[in-house]
Amino acid sequence: MTAVLRAQALGKKYGRRWALRECTIDIPAGHIVGLVGPNGAGKSTLLKLACGQLEPTAGGIAVLGGRPGGTPAQLAKVGFVAQDTPVYASLTVAEHLRLGARLNPRWDDGMARERIARLGLVPAHRAGKLSGGQRAQLALTLGLAKRPDLLILDEPAAALDPLARHEFLQHLREAASEHKLSVVLSSHLVSDLEQVCDYLVVLVDSRVQIAGRTDHLLTTHHRLTGPRCDPGRLPADQYVVSARHTDRQSTFVVRAGAPTHDPAWTVSRVSLEDLVLAYMDQHTAEHRRVAQEVRG
């Protein structure tokens, strides 16, 4: 099966600042991929590169085997719902569906109408008068009814209240399984992604920290708790992701093929949230150390 997204040493620079660098990933088809990281980590940049809104500064990217955004055929295969879910304020809901029908060869009008009706959106209402949640739903409907092979969503749930967010993601999961759709969505909320994603990419400080199937990630990461010690004294096959120390105790999140059998350590499972936080923490820990060195 071809990869939905394959990037090789991909980088994007704005002026002198790298928004994304040395990004090498290979995401297989058929997943709902969560792209997670703190604000400003480069999530939007990666997604915009994938749909052809941006041109890479370095490296290469292929989406569904093609160059992003170049041809009508490639555009038809990839749906994109941008951050803040922009819609035309002066056009009605029905006119947005007409726009979709006019501009997309694979447009599924029945599905679009059915979705709009189910969500309680009034076709004659102007999009400018919709609430943030309704607007997000309209934008998602446009993305889904286009019938892409890959749907890319940039912080799609950001404008929604918790209940609407839950329903939105639920719909997304149903639509993905119904239409054999691959999805890449970004969020800085792990709880969102936990609900729907079966593949995770963690992006921190413009670099990909880890990428993989969530079940695989959860079986290869462990929390070790034991008497206070230096991370260097852990077995060699235990890659330390993050470390926390109290006066007497050390807690590590480690990545390893198999959990250690050293009886000095208590091994426990990590949740997806713990795992993501550990990668973000690793980054902040590095920064903290650098800051101390500079001060010393």
């Binding site: 809104q53 170049g70 009508p72 038809a76 749906g79 922009p86 819609v87 035309y88």
Partner: peptide, 17 residues
């Protein structure tokens, strides 16, 4: 300014067209 370029440029129509 409205961000709608992100909507319309991601339909199946190239920017040139």
């Amino acid at each position: 300014e409205a961000g709608t370029h992100l909507l319309v440029w991601n339909q199946s129509v190239t920017r040139a067209r």
